[in-house]
């Protein structure tokens, strides 16, 4: 019986470790990364952009790649794309100071005043803004493992210390679980998009004949509500919403929306 239990645990670990392995074929993307950086340093920003985009297509989804891509766009004076990629980089490596600095530089160059986003869920809850969903997930996984381990130990040894550990990890489990759910919700419902065209007309309806409400400029961050026949309904504030052509903007979280 005990042999069976230990074998189960070891087997579970092996499965876990094997299923989270890193892509083995690293030489290709390292080469591409090096070449893209060289192009950037040589001032060939278009080539650098292609290189970084190729890396992303290869599945090297990493905040530093998005940051470098943002830099390349910045050098090409395409501040909308730069902001878009800095924002994507910020989601993946939120504590990187370089991103915040360069994002600030890019935001300084846009024409529209972006109102402070006042979400109904504070992004500062449990410092969620400075943690990635993967980091929260790993923390939750560790706490989950320890919680069940102490519960498991209590099947055979009901000592007092195991009880306190179990209760502690239960509390941590609930906190980590709540944080994870909240972060997942925020990521899944992140509808922010960046205007990519130098000037965009915002109309009262999804038709070119509709009334022009106002104009937006490259780099402005808006909220995308829904898509209809090649048009997107966007919102800046309660009083400022309207329709723009789909190609005029791109979502920061490509999977959402």
């Amino acid at each position: 019986m005990r042999r069976f239990i230990w074998l189960s645990i070891v087997g579970l670990f092996l499965v876990c470790v094997l299923t989270v392995e890193i892509k083995a074929d690293s030489n290709d993307w390292q080469e591409n990364f090096f070449r893209a950086n060289q192009a950037y340093k040589a001032g060939q920003y278009k080539k650098a952009v292609s290189g970084y985009k190729e890396l992303i297509r290869q599945g090297v989804i990493n905040g530093h790649i998005y940051y470098n891509l943002g830099n390349a766009y910045f050098r090409m004076n395409r501040f909308g794309r730069a902001i878009l990629n800095y924002e994507r980089a910020h989601i993946l490596i939120p504590r990187d100071a370089d991103i915040n600095f360069n994002l600030g530089q890019a935001l300084d160059r846009i024409k529209d005043v972006i109102p402070e986003s006042g979400g109904y869920i504070s992004m500062n809850f449990f410092q969620l803004k400075s943690l990635t969903i993967t980091e929260i997930l790993w923390a939750f996984a560790c706490i989950n493992f320890l919680f069940w381990t102490f519960l498991f130990i209590r099947l055979f040894s009901r000592s007092e210390w195991t009880y306190y550990f179990m209760v502690t990890f239960l509390a941590l489990w609930l906190m980590a679980g709540a944080s994870f759910c909240l972060k997942w919700y925020m990521t899944a419902t992140d509808d922010r998009a960046v205007i990519l065209k130098s000037e965009v007309d915002v109309l009262a309806g999804p038709d070119s004949k509709d009334t022009l409400l106002f104009q937006l400029h490259e780099g402005t961050i808006v909220h995308q509500e829904r898509t209809e026949d090649g048009w997107k309904l966007i919102r800046i504030s309660v009083k400022k919403r309207g329709w723009v052509k789909s190609g005029a903007l791109e979502l920061i979280q490509p999977a959402s929306g």
Binding site: V15, C16, T19, V20, E21, I22, K23, W29, Q30, F33, N37, Y40, K41, G59, V60, I61, N62, H64, I65, Y67, N68, N71, A72, F74, D98, F101, N102, Q105, A106, T134, L137, W138, A141, W184
Partner: peptide, 23 residues
């Protein structure tokens, strides 16, 4: 702006440990 990041060790592709996956 500040320069690009060139360190290979920072460029760790995302693992498969995501919600909804087998792992």
């Amino acid at each position: 702006i500040l320069p690009v990041h060139t360190s290979i060790k920072d460029i760790v592709p995302e693992g498969r440990f995501k919600p909804g996956t087998l792992s």
